[in-house]
Design a binder for these strands. Structure first.
Lengths: 335, 335
DNA sequence: TCCGGTCGTGACAACGATTACCTAGCCGTT
DNA sequence: AACGGCTAGGTAATCGTTGTCACGACCGGA
């Protein structure tokens, strides 16, 4: 009935020794006589013993599992990043538990507390909650990705240069001669969104573009939201001649709307690359923040922490690069 | 230091009662006097007590966590399906642990055993391993999705009609007048691939199309593989006038290749819908197997099992429908 | 009044592993 | 010869929670 009816004491009994000695062998304690060790290992193999991770975790207070918390597993960016971290973790013999918060900040605390209660070895979090002070007491290394946590200055963070990326996109559009650039982005309670919007505004000011709040659409959580926002922007009395989309979810909607309305003359730069962006006509110009590279950096950073290396204070920021494919190089009509 | 220094006995002490009674309140046992319950709940709130899932799991032998095992988190199909299951599970107060096998059949056994050792309440598996007999002894409900498991006839399965979907796609292409249809698909050690290829062959025979093995390309794991396979197909002495792509990963490659080679005159039907398929020119005709619908069916089936309802013997198969968007309605040149 | 039956409660063991602490033997030294 | 130090191994406590069982109080019926 049970998957593992074999317990340590069964192994010990078969090897004619005590559970303690068997435990020593399992955990690689050198203070065991060679023949005893051999007997116990033979018993382990014969019975197919596998230690119970729950009991071990309860007693030791640690676990060999890495916890990952992201907004949504279905988001292509997080799916790719998470997949990369998991692959690397498994290669190092770590287990991985992935949990998503459905972009609900309240759920984040619940999910994170649950993982901590399970004594994960380390925690990788894409933070959405507004307060992360409770993590200051976490018994394991915590690494933030994609966004800097609020209310928790000490956290080591792997992030992308949201502000700079947005500025880069806007500067590019300004260089093509655009004066009115629409912004389509996510909810303002997410730091990523705020930083990208700030970058947009910074560059709008720097390039002396039209600073019209009617051009700014935030709060778009889904592709459908992005679609609606785009349609609204195009219907303005003074519509934008270019659009900056702040994340992949909205990008999919903006692209769909521009094609559906047959308005691919409107220039477009998206934050984050996505599948088929290069296949569309015109190809979609993106500011690329490679999710796999972020995953790799996050994983290697976490492994350093787990190995006991102390955290560095500074953020680890990944470089962004503009990939020009055509949509961002469209010029405004009156040009 | 510890996240939860608060234990049940602290709560009990504050409420001036025993741990057992406190435990009763936590677990909703009705046999507790009202004022005692109130005192304990007050203590729980005051101390911020949260039960230790590890200890609870060890003692009870069960956990309120649902385990999900899929090939790859980064695969859009699994990402979407998994996200749906997780969302529904969380809504029911279940935790979710997601693990992926990186499409490595050997890893599947390891990952599954680990989840079982953690006493998950239920297990949803997209099987890749060749032998699932060890799951017959699992102490929790096991539900397979997307593929029927090998060597484990008893498993309840939520799947899509792979064979029928492929036949539907081929019949559609045949109806447009195509005689030579290329096949681009994944590795043959995955049942899904085998079934879809069989459906392709069945319909090739039924519609009296060219049964040329040179038209069949399997073993494509990535979009890049799909791209290469497509280029090879187009370079054949007698190239296909239409292509059937067997999964989303390959589809992304096939689409990219057709656009890159400027060969969108070649008809295309893909198994599985994907983002932007409707935005491309031509829109990509797909046999849709809605990953969210599969996730919903899997979740509701699993919830029934968890509630104690016995499993039904038969598979639960989701209907597929052809979504015509243009690429599948291209006619062969000599038509 | 006596008795069986609930109700509320608590003491204690148990889940399966690890760890603190202790014992017994063996060696070499003084 | 006695002692300290080392090695191999065992006993029992422990992690935090829940199941078993027993107990006293109270209630209604005979």
């Amino acid at each position: 009935m049970k998957q593992t009816a074999v317990r340590l004491k069964d192994v010990a009994a078969l090897a004619a020794t005590s559970t303690k000695t068997a435990s020593r062998v399992i955990n690689g304690d050198p203070r065991v006589a060679e023949d005893t060790r051999v007997r116990i290992l033979a018993a382990v193999r014969e019975l197919g013993y596998r230690p119970d991770p729950t009991a071990r975790s309860l007693r030791k207070g640690t676990d060999d599992t890495l916890g990952i918390v992201v907004d949504s597993i279905a988001d292509p960016f997080f799916a790719s990043m998470t997949g990369t971290i998991e692959r690397l973790a498994i290669a190092r013999g770590l287990r991985v538990m992935i949990a998503s918060t459905g972009r609900d900040p309240r759920l984040e605390t619940t999910v994170v507390d649950d993982l901590l209660a399970r004594r994960v070895a380390g925690l990788v979090i894409a933070p959405t909650a507004t307060d992360h002070s409770h993590l200051a007491q976490a018994a394991c290394p915590v690494l933030f990705v994609d966004r800097r946590p609020d209310g928790f200055a000490a956290g080591e963070t792997v992030l992308v240069d949201d502000n700079g990326g947005a500025r880069q996109a806007l500067a590019h559009l300004a260089a093509q001669g655009h004066r009115r650039v629409g912004y389509v982005g996510g909810k303002m309670d997410v730091a990523t969104t705020r930083n990208r919007l700030q970058g947009y505004r910074d560059q709008v000011a720097a390039s002396a573009l039209d600073a019209d709040e009617a051009l700014v659409r935030t709060g778009c959580n889904t592709a459908d939201d992005g679609r609606s926002a785009t349609v609204e922007l195009l219907a303005l009395p003074e519509p934008p001649t270019a659009i900056f989309s702040s994340n992949t979810r909205t990008s999919l909607g903006v692209v769909a709307a521009l094609h559906a309305c047959d308005r691919t003359d409107v220039a477009l730069v998206c934050f984050g690359d996505f599948a088929l962006a290069d296949v569309l006509d015109p190809g979609v110009t993106v500011v690329d923040h490679d999710p796999e590279a972020i995953g790799e950096l996050a994983a290697s950073t976490m492994f350093e922490r787990l190995a006991g290396k102390p955290a560095v204070d500074s953020d680890r920021t990944l470089p962004l690069r503009l990939i020009m494919r055509g949509s961002g190089e469209r010029r405004p009509p009156h040009d």
